[in-house]
Simulated scan of single mutants.
Amino acid sequence: MKLSKVRWGIIGCGDVTEVKSGPAFQKVENSELVAVMRRTGELAKDYAERHHVPKWYDDADALIQDPDVDAVYIATPPGAHKEYTIKGAKAGKPIYVEKPMALNFAECQEMITACETAGVPLYAAYYRRALPRFLKIKELLENNAIGEIRFVSTMQYQAAAEDVMDPEKLTWRVQPDVAGGGLFFDLASHTLDVLDFLLGPIQSVQGFASNQAGYYQAEDIVTGTYLFESGIHGIGTWCFSAFEDVDVNEIVGSKGKISFSTFGNDPVVLTNAKGKEEWNFEPPQHVHQPLVETVVEELTGQGKCPSTGVSGARTNWVLGEMVKNYYL
């Protein structure tokens, strides 16, 4: 499939599309946002007017079937990703789907099969694969800056947020039937996908998930160990009811280490025999834009996107393996 220009439609124009993603489809070369959809028509209309989008819908099927829409960005919660991906694929539309890619690995496989059968590409919105800070880390690893890679460790924890402490205002992100799991699925998916990007696929996983604070039904702490296909070891803990915010990843090698955060703007730090070296990166205004550029380049025959349905599904598999004891 090769397009001269990609005309996008968005299904689910909620908060993530206001700044992080939506404007990117209008700013990338050879890309245009032509339609948006939200179940509440007035909200879809409001978004379209504020962002100067010519069409709005309150029916996803209508947007998918619109002949002016070449490709579909699915920005709903994960519970609807499979349905809209399959419908879009059957309509012959390339799909760019939010993360995590689906509720579970089995749904991801169905989505991949549907797109392969229809002959359309499927992309997962793990935008960190195209951000300069993570490209720098990949460059350091490829240039042997820390020697042979031995293991990676992750420590990410935070205090419980108000939207998970009040059962009357419970965010969808901690409702497993909508999100796939708890905040682990929403947040840890970014880190695990970045590690897949930097170190290659994970082949074996063992994890323990629990709910310690009791604010909601989903897991609120996960600890896991994993083995990458390359032989690199990994360990991580994610807790969402702790006393402060911590976000630290370390990739340790035979000759040094690289320290970085997944979500923060603190520097990437290389430590080796030469001492310490740091690199600072300011995130782009629209964090999806670098990845959307690669999607548009691939659809117009000018490049390749590093985040596909296949790579996105691998992350869903790891997430599922880490929490399966909790949901047995």
Rank of each mutant, 00 (worst) to 15 (best):
T76F: 07
K274Y: 11
F243Y: 14
E32V: 03
A102C: 07
Q109I: 08
G236K: 02
R38M: 13
D220W: 08
E42L: 11
A130R: 10
D59F: 07
Q212R: 13
A130L: 06
L43I: 03
C305F: 01
E116Q: 13
S31Y: 09
S254K: 11
K2Y: 02
S230Y: 11
D247R: 05
G264P: 01
F184K: 07
K169F: 12
S241R: 10
W8F: 13
Y57K: 11
K87G: 01
N30G: 01
P201D: 05
Y216A: 00
Y96F: 12
T315G: 05
L291P: 02
E293M: 13
P77A: 12
A125L: 02
L131F: 06
K276T: 11
S189F: 02
V178L: 14
V248C: 01
E321R: 10
N316H: 05
A60M: 14
Y73V: 05
P77L: 07
G79L: 01
H286T: 11
Y84N: 04
G275W: 07
Y226E: 03
E32R: 08
T113K: 14
K304G: 00
V120K: 07
G119T: 08
S230C: 08
K5N: 12
L131C: 05
I221H: 08
A179R: 10
D58A: 14
G180R: 09
F243A: 15
Q109D: 10
Y157Q: 14
I251A: 11
V222A: 10
L170K: 07
R129I: 05
V248A: 00
Y226L: 11
A218C: 10
V164G: 01
A44S: 15
A218S: 15
F208G: 01
F260L: 12
A188N: 12
A62P: 00
P176L: 12
E18D: 13
A209H: 14
N104H: 13
F25P: 00
A161D: 10
A160N: 06
H286E: 14
D266R: 11
A80T: 08
G275M: 08
A102P: 00
A71W: 02
D68G: 10
S31H: 06
S21K: 01
S241N: 15
V16N: 13
S210P: 00
